[in-house]
Simulated scan of single mutants.
Amino acid sequence: MANTYAYALLLRGINVGGHRKVPMADLRALLTELGHGGVRSYLQSGNAVFTSPERDERQLATAIERAIEGHFGFTVDCLVRGAPYLRAIVDDCPFPAAELEGRQLHVTYFSERVDPERLAGMDTAAHLPEQFRLGDRALYLYAPDGLGRSKLAEQLARPSLFKGIVATSRNWNTVLKLAEMTAASDTV
């Protein structure tokens, strides 16, 4: 039996306001049709876990993007991240996650490394106590009043800031759950 690796699939911008609907049952069926094993979804906001012998996250994401476009008729940016990476995101959190509510801490996952120079012009002191830190293809955001009220999140969401990079955010509860789900599925 070949080694299989556990991955989380993060879809960007689906099932929001009734647009770009991707039912999770259909997504699970599509991933299974692509030959992935142990397919499970989490919430309705575009999170799935699966196993595959494939080692290349970018190749997996591209194949899934093509399959989604073929099945649903619209494009969806996808990020695929392996179990060790997801565990490292949890372990490397620069904020006291255990002391915070899940709605106060978010991770934005990026398709590639973000050069800190992109963020050099931001007036971070103006947004305190809100803070952010860059990680490995990720940005950690501490927003004590939640994302919906965060002025810093508003600044970080400017389209020009991360131009050319796919980005999708998850709250800390989802970050933890995806790390847990992939750890349980990783057979390597």
Rank of each mutant, 00 (worst) to 15 (best):
G18F: 07
H19V: 03
H19K: 10
H19W: 02
R20Q: 10
R20S: 07
M24Y: 04
M24E: 03
M24H: 03
A29S: 14
L31W: 04
E33I: 04
E33Q: 10
E33F: 02
L34I: 02
H36T: 06
V39P: 01
R40F: 11
L43Q: 12
Q44R: 06
S45V: 06
S45N: 03
G46V: 05
N47G: 04
T51V: 10
T51S: 11
S52P: 08
E54F: 03
E54V: 09
E54T: 10
R55S: 14
R55G: 14
R55I: 08
R55H: 10
D56E: 12
E57K: 04
E57M: 10
Q59P: 04
A61Q: 08
A63E: 15
I64V: 15
R66T: 14
R66Q: 15
A67K: 02
G70V: 05
H71P: 07
F72W: 11
F72M: 05
G73I: 02
F74M: 08
T75W: 14
T75R: 15
V76A: 04
D77R: 13
C78Y: 02
C78D: 04
C78I: 13
L79M: 11
L79E: 07
V80L: 11
R81G: 06
R81Y: 09
G82T: 04
G82Q: 13
G82E: 14
L86E: 07
R87T: 07
A88L: 11
A88R: 14
A88Q: 15
I89Q: 07
D91M: 05
D91T: 08
C93A: 05
P94F: 09
F95S: 00
A98G: 12
L100A: 03
E101G: 13
E101W: 03
R103W: 14
L105C: 04
H106V: 08
V107H: 02
T108I: 12
Y109F: 15
F110T: 09
F110S: 11
F110Q: 11
F110I: 06
S111H: 10
E112D: 15
R113E: 15
R113G: 11
D115F: 01
D115I: 06
R118K: 12
L119E: 12
A120D: 14
A120S: 15
G121Y: 06
G121I: 11
M122G: 09
D123P: 01
T124M: 14
